[in-house]
Design a protein around this nucleic acid. Structure first.
Length: 232
DNA sequence: TCATTAAATTGTT
DNA sequence: AACAATTTAATGA
């Protein structure tokens, strides 16, 4: 992960939570923000180490996963551009229980713990934002347990798509989830060919629409139902 | 702006 | 894993 302050002025608009702050709070938050790049495969945070701060993905895709004693890695969630992670670890000042790895070249924003705490202390609306974020994360972590039980590859793909779709906070259907099939394969723990076939199946059933550089989620509710049925 | 070329991504075996 | 087909991005007139 390389530091790249030159990106600093490029996009304040891409950080959604800045909008919930007052002018003074926003200025202070902006000053404490740091920017970085991560190449494909680079670790944004390693399991057991301390996290640099609250991490936002401005561009690209980061996989949050845990590795158990036997060396088996489980994907917890993928974080697309616009998403933030690590709030739980920053709050508790604990070493990271999971690792975060860039799946492609990424641009990141980092709000160090001091800046994060300052906002929590001063802004009610920021607290609300973080609470919603934590709540979302909680359900994903619970889902990660069931994840391992999913055997059908198309359901694994459907599950990842559902989470990514939710993570970007898209209430409306027909939203494009921008990621390569290779990246989806990395998230789902499948080969690219397998993901390709699974996507074709899902498209056949009218649940998604496959296109170059992304997948349109046409019926998020139906996708979620399929995954749920797969658990049962 | 448009045509050509290179690079990236996808579909298939 | 390899290959062909398709799509995007880059280049230069």
């Amino acid at each position: 992960m390389t530091s790249d302050p030159s990106d600093a002025r490029t996009l304040a608009a891409d950080i959604r939570w800045l909008d919930v702050l007052t002018g003074a709070e926003r200025d202070r938050a902006w000053k404490s923000l740091r920017f970085a790049r991560a190449d494909a495969g680079a670790f944004v945070c390693r399991q057991g180490e301390r996290i640099a701060g609250w991490v936002g993905v401005l561009e690209g895709l980061v996989r949050v996963a845990s590795t158990d004693e036997s060396g088996c890695t489980t994907t917890i969630t993928g974080v697309l551009a616009g998403g933030w992670f690590g709030e739980g670890t920053v709050l508790k000042r604990e070493p990271c229980r999971y690792h975060a790895q860039a799946l492609c070249r990424c641009r990141l924003a980092i709000l160090p713990a001091e800046g994060f705490d300052a906002l929590l202390a001063s802004s009610l609306r920021f607290n609300r934002f973080v609470m919603d974020q934590l709540n979302e994360r909680l359900s994903q972590f619970i889902g990660a347990r069931e994840w391992e039980r999913l055997r059908r590859p198309d359901l694994r793909v459907a599950c990842q798509l559902t989470q990514l779709h939710n993570a970007v906070l898209n209430p409306r259907a027909g939203t494009l989830v921008k990621l390569r099939q290779q990246e989806l394969a990395d998230l789902a723990g499948l080969s690219r060919q397998c993901v390709n076939r699974s996507l074709a199946q899902l498209q056949e059933r009218g649940l998604v629409r496959v296109q170059y550089g992304g997948v349109q989620v046409l019926d998020a509710a139906a996708l979620a139902r399929e995954v749920e049925a797969g658990h049962g």
